[in-house]
């Protein structure tokens, strides 16, 4: 274990949604390289409270990379410099003494800033509410082994289902698009036999709800590069294919 000294932080402070916001400069004199990035912010906040100043507001919870609550643009990169790593799992050993670190909230119109580094990602919930589920009312399910699912199919569904809903894909996208998030959810459910009955209805509803809130995809692939769970950009192709199909199939089903 060693220590980093004299870290310079430029942190975005914004009192509320209506405030225009600005950067504040802070210094961390010393921090252990075993500390996580958020523990470094804890130290900053303790310092601010001790100076009788208001602590920096930021979203965080599990601190083990699975809940998707934490965010932050660190030096302009969603979740910081380490690949496939959420901000809470980023450790200070990635930085060195004397570094200047710029800390900003997610940058996307669909995620309005609430305060300081905290944003509102409610639009993700709206997408799920519109169709991101399999309708299976509690109580009537058949025995779990009645539907054999080939292992590669179950594995592919799991790869997509690994999405933690953090929003890094949107923050990294130059268009503020949510295609990777939406496509991950759609492909998780559309790959599985249980998901087939609602496949087209689901795809159409989710894509169109996504379009109400987010920008459009122009195939940059920044989303996948920023994704802490390394969701492949391939899922977007599957979503586009299913969306095209769903426009025909849903009309056909309705006309019956």
């Amino acid at each position: 274990m060693s220590h980093l000294k004299n870290l310079k932080l430029k942190v975005w402070r914004q009192k509320g949604p209506a405030d225009s916001g600005h950067f504040e400069n802070y210094t961390i004199d010393e921090i252990s390289d075993e500390a996580s990035f958020l523990e470094m912010l804890d130290v900053l906040n303790e310092q601010l409270i001790s100076d009788n100043k208001e602590a920096v507001v930021f979203d965080h919870d599990c601190r083990e990379g699975i809940c998707g609550t934490c965010s932050l643009m660190i030096n302009g990169v969603a979740h910081g410099p380490q690949k496939a790593t959420t901000t809470c799992q980023l450790h200070m050993r990635t930085f060195k003494s004397g570094d200047t670190i710029v800390v900003e909230p997610w940058r996307a119109t669909a995620f309005p800033i609430i305060k300081d580094l905290m944003v509102d990602r409610g639009a993700f919930d709206r997408i799920i509410e519109s169709g991101g589920f399999i309708t299976a009312v509690t109580g009537g399910a058949p025995d779990a082994n009645l539907i054999p699912i080939p292992k590669p199919v179950a594995d592919a569904a799991m790869d997509s289902a690994a999405c933690i809903g953090c929003g890094a894909c949107v923050a990294a996208c130059p268009n503020g698009a949510a295609n990777l998030f939406t496509a991950a959810k759609i492909s998780h459910l559309n790959y599985l036999p249980q998901g087939q009955a609602e496949r087209h209805k689901r795809t159409e509803a989710m894509v169109e709800t996504m379009d109400e809130h987010f920008g459009s995809c122009t195939n940059h692939g920044e989303c996948s590069a920023a994704c802490p769970k390394e969701i492949s950009v391939d899922v977007i192709a599957l979503m586009n294919k299913d969306y095209r199909a769903s426009k025909f199939k849903n009309r056909k089903e309705l006309s019956r």
Partner: peptide, 22 residues
Amino acid sequence: VDIIDQMVAQGVPFAREYGGLL
């Protein structure tokens, strides 16, 4: 036993054997 049935019906991708069973 009912929980597993319910969760599979909802699309929880539990680990499977090559034959497709849980």
